[in-house]
Simulated scan of single mutants.
Amino acid sequence: MDLEAAVENYAERDWRTGVEGTVRFALVGIGWWTTDVAIPAIESTELCRTTTLVSSSAEKGRRVAAEHDVDHAITYDEFHDGAAADAYDAIYVATPNAYHLEYAETAAELGKAVLCEKPMEATVERAERLVETCEEHDVPLMVAYRMQTDPSVRRARRLIEDGVLGEPVQVYGNNSQPLLEMIPDPDQWRLDPELSGYGTSVMDLGIYPINTARYLLDRDPVAVQAWLTSSHEAFSDVPDERSSMLLRFEGDVHAVSTSSQRAQRDSQLKVTGTEGQIDLRPAFGGQCTLTVTRGDVTVELSDESMDAEREMELEFDYFADRVLGGDPIGPDGRHGLTDMRVIEAIHEADRTGGVVEP
């Protein structure tokens, strides 16, 4: 096998169908991720445009709209009342987890497509309601797993499908960041279980290696064990300042995953097979280096132009391509529900000290 040729034989937008048009977005929740990443990403897309901003603050909405030449700025209440509904075709939900459902419900009732940030909601039950609402109103729903449109990750999946690793055997994933240095507020929503859901490190960070492993392997976890701890006073209301878990995937692939909200920023995802290994690092923070080893041959490929904004640009364009063409969406609501059930099982496994089947 020519490993170098196998690694390089990839088209970045392999999902592109050639459909033309524009999907106009209402962005719901204009925190730093929306203003610093999502809005600039949409400005770089081929198929998307931001036409509406939805915020709790009318003043902030108008200010950000003026800064980015966005046509409409409305409040959450105005959104629910249908204001500016003719100005957008889809919504992007980037509020705290526990608010995703209410905005998706309104969008579905208005016949708007929904791109919802991960995790889909705060609990499995609310996530189920979100999916059922979108299905009932026959509107497209995608969960915003931006790794699934990241070129390095898609290339890795193709290599695994082509048998470069032989049979997958094991996975190692980690994701950590210094949350309190990034956002120096102990009262922030990620540390409030009423808003974040089951916890903080698994919901916010651990979901990345779990979902990306699911995507790469095209398999789901069937059993989990977990150990969650919190020691810093800012994490007193959530069980998982740091987490570690064992997961057994379909086909007897074993995985170890760790995450922490109070540690040096780092991320990695490594898949080892009977004949080779794929290592993505940093796996979830842009500028990923893909290292592929088969026997005594190693090929390394880096994309220094990749960052969170470009990842989001590809994600938005993928979603728009599917909405415009009416084609099935890859990470849809049912796909996101599996992650919610796995996360719930992880927290249950920690509480019981046993093995839990999602």
Score class of each variant (00 low, 15 high):
residue 95 T to G: 07
residue 277 Q to Y: 00
residue 22 T to Q: 13
residue 23 V to C: 11
residue 48 C to P: 01
residue 303 D to C: 02
residue 129 R to C: 03
residue 48 C to R: 06
residue 180 L to W: 06
residue 55 S to M: 03
residue 348 E to G: 00
residue 310 R to F: 04
residue 7 V to H: 01
residue 168 P to I: 06
residue 129 R to K: 14
residue 316 F to R: 11
residue 57 S to W: 10
residue 74 I to V: 12
residue 87 A to F: 05
residue 45 T to H: 00
residue 122 A to G: 08
residue 12 E to T: 14
residue 85 A to Y: 02
residue 89 D to N: 11
residue 33 W to M: 14
residue 189 W to H: 10
residue 161 E to M: 11
residue 150 D to S: 14
residue 323 V to D: 10
residue 329 I to T: 12
residue 281 R to M: 10
residue 77 D to W: 04
residue 40 P to T: 03
residue 212 T to C: 11
residue 86 D to N: 07
residue 119 P to H: 06
residue 47 L to S: 06
residue 204 D to G: 06
residue 36 D to R: 13
residue 202 V to W: 02
residue 51 T to M: 02
residue 221 P to S: 10
residue 304 E to H: 15
residue 192 D to F: 05
residue 6 A to L: 14
residue 103 Y to P: 13
residue 305 S to P: 00
residue 242 R to A: 15
residue 167 E to L: 09
residue 127 A to H: 02
residue 8 E to L: 15
residue 329 I to F: 01
residue 342 V to P: 03
residue 313 E to C: 05
residue 357 E to W: 00
residue 153 V to L: 03
residue 109 E to M: 09
residue 168 P to Y: 07
residue 260 S to V: 09
residue 293 T to V: 13
residue 178 P to K: 04
residue 174 N to K: 14
residue 141 L to I: 09
residue 8 E to T: 11
residue 266 D to G: 08
residue 39 I to Y: 12
residue 150 D to A: 15
residue 54 V to Y: 11
residue 213 A to N: 07
residue 323 V to E: 13
residue 130 L to K: 05
residue 354 G to H: 02
residue 142 M to V: 01
residue 36 D to M: 09
residue 335 H to M: 06
residue 233 E to K: 08
residue 192 D to H: 04
residue 107 A to L: 13
residue 328 P to C: 00
residue 56 S to W: 12
residue 140 P to G: 06
residue 11 A to L: 13
residue 2 D to W: 02
residue 43 E to A: 14
residue 74 I to E: 05
residue 352 T to Y: 01
residue 351 R to W: 03
residue 181 E to H: 04
residue 69 D to W: 00
residue 1 M to N: 08
residue 270 K to R: 15
residue 192 D to W: 11
residue 237 D to E: 15
residue 259 S to N: 12
residue 202 V to P: 04
residue 118 K to M: 00
residue 132 E to D: 14
residue 289 T to N: 00
residue 316 F to C: 08
residue 101 L to N: 12
residue 175 N to C: 12
residue 342 V to M: 06
residue 145 Y to D: 08
residue 71 D to Y: 01
residue 118 K to L: 01
residue 321 D to C: 04
residue 269 L to W: 00
residue 200 T to Y: 03
residue 182 M to Y: 06
residue 171 V to W: 07
residue 33 W to F: 15
residue 140 P to S: 07
residue 21 G to M: 12
residue 275 E to K: 08
residue 250 E to K: 02
residue 304 E to D: 15
residue 98 A to S: 14
residue 201 S to E: 03
residue 133 T to G: 04
residue 283 A to K: 05
residue 130 L to M: 10
residue 10 Y to R: 05
residue 38 A to I: 13
residue 217 L to F: 10
residue 152 S to Y: 03
residue 36 D to K: 12
residue 38 A to D: 14
residue 358 P to S: 01
residue 5 A to W: 04
residue 205 L to K: 05
residue 172 Y to N: 09
residue 283 A to R: 07
residue 199 G to S: 05
